[in-house]
């Protein structure tokens, strides 16, 4: 083994950059969250204010609403993407011509810049120009105006996210499904088990780690969705699709109320970590206990 100093020198630039761009901002926000600091206020200097920011936050209706919307959105997209993704994975595993091409096309949305995804969907939904309002009017006699009806805006944002991210779920589940052991499946079929039972008792337990990993990744991404929603609805109508990332960035940030914004960032980070940790425990902890 060579001198470890050389090793540390090689890894030092990476650690330094991540310290400055990753850890330092976190520590900064952790401290500022406990200060009263508004550059446009009478006293622009930071002053220690204890937990006052947090005390105000738990009564901040706009903030709580934004959190609630974020969770609603996350639940909707996670469930629908898992169901659709599983079905598509099954379909993609079938033997067919042009499989590679279909797979590539299906992967396309994953690579597109979120902001461009938002632009794409905006063009699909603009009244007078986009085809979706036109079809809605023609086929269902429904007035479809994103900037007026909150339910439509929310549903469209969910649909956009499904279009954008279902391919990831499809591909991960496909990877899981293709590693499924043949033998227990064959045995169960010979024993005359129904497809439904096979799914619940064999396929699903085997897929569990892949499903949980996928949910983990999607959860983190869904909680921080900003770009495409900003482009599609701008958070509107009103604040009906203003998810937490958007709320911090568009509402709190421009007010230059740094202490309050930091406190809000901290709570958001806290909730993200707690949710991810709970999932992580579900992934690993439970397994250890039953062993």
């Amino acid at each position: 083994m060579r001198n470890t100093t050389t090793g540390w020198l090689l890894i030092a630039p990476t650690l330094f950059i991540l310290f400055v761009t990753g850890l330092l901002p976190f520590l900064y926000v952790l401290v500022v969250g406990f200060f009263d600091w508004n550059t446009f206020a009478q006293n622009p200097e930071p002053q220690f204010s204890g937990v006052n920011n947090f005390r105000a936050l738990v009564f901040d209706a706009a903030f709580l609403k934004s959190l609630w919307l974020t969770f609603k959105f996350t639940a909707f997209v996670l469930v629908s993407q898992l169901v659709i993704g599983f079905f598509l994975a099954k379909m993609l595993l079938r033997d067919m011509p042009l499989k590679g091409l279909f797979r590539t096309i299906h992967t396309l949305p994953l690579m597109i810049a979120p902001i461009a995804v938002g632009a794409t969907w905006r063009l699909m939904t603009v009244p007078g120009l986009g085809p979706i309002p036109h079809w809605m009017q023609q086929w269902f006699d429904v007035k479809y105006i994103l900037s007026r009806f909150p339910d439509q805006a929310f549903a469209t944002v969910v649909a956009m996210d499904i279009w954008h991210w279902t391919p990831l779920v499809t591909l991960t589940l496909m990877a899981g499904l293709s590693n499924l052991p043949e033998e227990p499946l064959e045995q169960a079929r010979i024993d005359g088990a129904s497809e439904w039972r096979i799914f619940w008792d064999i396929t699903l337990p085997f897929l569990k780690p892949v499903v949980l990993t996928t949910v983990f990744i999607r959860l983190m991404d869904a909680l921080r969705t900003v770009d495409e929603v900003w482009m599609l609805t701008g958070g509107g109508p009103g604040a009906e699709t203003r998810f937490i990332g958007l709320h911090i960035w568009r509402v709190v940030f421009p007010k230059t109320d740094y202490g309050y914004g930091s406190a809000m960032s901290l709570i958001t980070l806290y909730l993200t970590i707690v949710m991810c940790w709970l999932l992580y425990v579900a992934m690993t902890g439970m397994k250890e206990k039953t062993r």
Partner: peptide, 9 residues
Amino acid sequence: VAISLLWMR
């Protein structure tokens, strides 16, 4: 953290 926040609320 959770207890403190809920307490304040």
